[in-house]
Structures are given as C-alpha cells and as structure tokens.
Design a binder for these strands. Structure first.
Lengths: 192, 192
DNA sequence: ATCTTTGTACTGACCGGTCAGTGCAAAAGC
DNA sequence: GCTTTTGCACTGACCGGTCAGTACAAAGAT
C-alpha cells in the first residue's frame, strides 16, 4: 500500500481516539488496530508516538489555516473577518474531533511536542490576526487595536462556542449560532 | 492529622506537579512524596487516582465560580459583567495550571469523570449566563440575546486570551490585556 | 526468459520498564 | 478504642519501542 494512504488512515484513527480519551491515554496499539495496521507500521511511518502526534497536528492545522485563508481571500476587511469566523465555525462543526484534540492538547504542559503544538496553533490564529490587521489598515477598525490579543479572543470565542454547540445543543442550527457570534463580534450586544 | 488537612496537602501537591509535568505524567508516588504523605494515604483518602483528580477539579471550580459570583454581587448588570470578566482573567492569571487542567479535561468525549468535568465547567459558565440574563432583564442588553451561547463565548474568549497571555506574552500588563478584552466586549471594535 | 538482488512497506511477537493499586502490621493521633 | 496514617514489599497489567522476518515489485544480471 502507498505510504500516504497508510499515514492518512493512521491520522484518522489517531484523531478519533485522542479526542475520545486524550493523547496520553491513547495507546499506539489502539491507533494501529483502529487503522487496521500493525503496530510496527506506526513506527515505520513516524518513528515515535509523539512524532505521529506532531505530524497529526500539523496536518490538521494546515487544513484549518487554509480554510480560514480561503474564506478571507478577496473580500473587503470586515467581510473577511465575518467569513473567517464562519469558516472556523464550519470547520469545527465538520472536524469536531480534531478541534477537541487541538484545544485539549495545546494547553497540556510538559513534553516537547507541546512547544510545537503551540507554534502550530498560532498559525491558525495568525490568519485571524492578519485579517484584523488588514481591517485596521483599511480604517475599518480602531487604529489602536491590539490585533494579536483580539485574534486570540476571536479564535477562542468561536472555538468554545462551536464545541459547546456540538456538545450541548447539537440540534441548534448553524445559522442561529452564527448569528449570536456575529452580534457579539459587531458589538451589537447592547440594547438599542 | 485531620483528614481535611491531608486532602488539602494532596490537592496542593497535585496542582503543583500537574503544572510541572502534566496530568498523565504525574504519578501517585510523586504526589504522595511531594505532599509528605505515604502512598497508602492517597488511597485511604480518595480511593483512586482519578477520584483524586475529580475532587481536585471540583475544588478548583468551586473557587472559580465563587470568585466570579463575588465579583458580580451587588453591582448593576453591566458593571457586573465587566467585573466577572476581570475576575476570570485574574483567576486564570493566578491559577494558570488549574485553568489548563480544566480546559484540557473538559473536552474529551469518552470516560465518565470527563462527564463530571463538563458539568463542573458549566457551573462557572452558569455564573456568566446569570449575569447576562440579569442584564437582559434590566434592559441593558438586547432582549433577544441568546444568553447561553453568549456566556460560552465570553467565558471561552477570556480563557483563551488569558492562557495565550500567560504563555506567549507574560510580561504584558494585566491592565493592557484587560482593556483589549473590554473593548471587544463593549463592541468598541469598529472605528469611531 | 529466468534468476538474483535491492528497496520499500509492513508485520506481530516480544522485551523491559513503569505505575496504579494492594496488603498488612505497626504506629500515631483524636 | 476507633480512625487515620505510615512504610514497604509486592503484583500484574499495560505500553512504548524494537527487531527479525515476510511480501512483493522493480531493476539488474546472465
């Protein structure tokens, strides 16, 4: 079998298992079994458990960052911001397991991949920051806005809301959740 | 020694160790040693490692929820909202390792004490929701606001910003971060 | 055309260490 | 005297990582 297909299968299995039980509680044997592959294959392809995890994170964040960038591209700044938020919400809706893995494992202390994990996460937040910066430059947002902090805030807000949505109220419509998020983002919170 | 004093010592030791090396990497032997207690005592008091962590989580969230409630009490709704956000930011700044534990353990789908973790987290978000509801009732926030989703959003936004702050930019002042957060919350984002 | 080599992908039994949890007799504390 | 704690030896499951070996296809070699 082609190497890339095997890696793909291992990624999928690992994402599911880690989202269920956490990285430390997920064994290499489990991942191999779920992927329908021998344990040795994991080591042949990745060398170690943590290397598998690092590759997994990179793979997922690349896709997330690309989705966010695509959503933003070619739109005027404020539209782009809304599009990015929509795209993030949609991405998490579709890749809930990965989102859980991302939020849970980024903030674990210890290990060396944890450093990598943070760097990788910043790639996604970076897209949001870029959009905010563009909006500031276009004069659409206040000039003294701390785009770094604001990007963290927006990203984290959407991530939390999306996961709470899926976990606690999965029947609520995308549009509904999206609308509340937009209202918050636009500062339409206060009474008219 | 009194049981409660022993439990207290074990909580402190466990929190410290988790901050250093993470939850899974922390062994019961380490916790016992750090607490200056025999390993058997851990099992006499808690029965199992996961029961110890569950109790630890509950202990921490009780303190967080109490801090948020105290901050809100006796203030007019909108002031209360800002006070709650300040309190959350401050709490996480002071108990960073606990916040990490909370965020990491809440988002796993399997197991049973993960379920407990979610319930426990909702206790903290519930305080935010209560404040938002009060503000809506007082006519300070738009009547059709989905307070549940908005509470998730606010809580998650602050949590993310606080952890990013501590991890990436620990020298930035509390006031600074706080100000950006407030601007976002009040919808003062758009250019004047 | 047939044999031999080489490289790649994968296998699964196995090893050595780790760690949660146990058992228990003796000592402290209340 | 009942609860709580200690100290320590012990167990047994589990798990990351290894390694000798299989399968097989493409590339020489004769």
């Amino acid at each position: 079998m082609a190497r890339s297909a095997t890696r793909e299968k291992l990624f999928t299995a690992a994402i599911e298992l880690i989202a269920e039980s956490g990285l430390a509680a997920t064994t290499v044997d489990q991942i191999a079994e779920r992927a329908g592959v021998a344990k040795g294959t994991v080591y042949y392809n990745f060398g170690s458990k943590s290397a598998l995890f690092a590759a997994l994170l990179e793979y997922g964040v690349d896709r997330l960052a690309a989705a966010l960038r695509d959503a933003a591209s070619g739109r005027p700044p404020l539209d782009a911001l809304e599009a990015v938020v929509s795209a993030e919400l949609a991405f998490i809706g579709e890749h809930e397991s990965f989102a859980r893995l991302l939020i849970a494992e980024t903030w674990r202390s210890g290990g060396d991949w944890q450093h990598t994990a943070r760097l990788i996460r910043e790639r996604a937040i970076g897209v949001v920051a870029d959009v905010l910066r563009a909006a500031v430059e276009a004069g659409d947002l206040r000039a003294d806005l701390d785009t770094g902090t604001a990007a963290s805030a927006v990203f984290g807000m959407v991530l939390t809301v999306a996961l709470d949505w899926r976990a606690l109220d999965p029947d609520r419509s995308f549009t509904d959740v999206h609308a509340t998020l937009m209202a918050l983002l636009r500062g339409r919170l206060t009474a008219v």
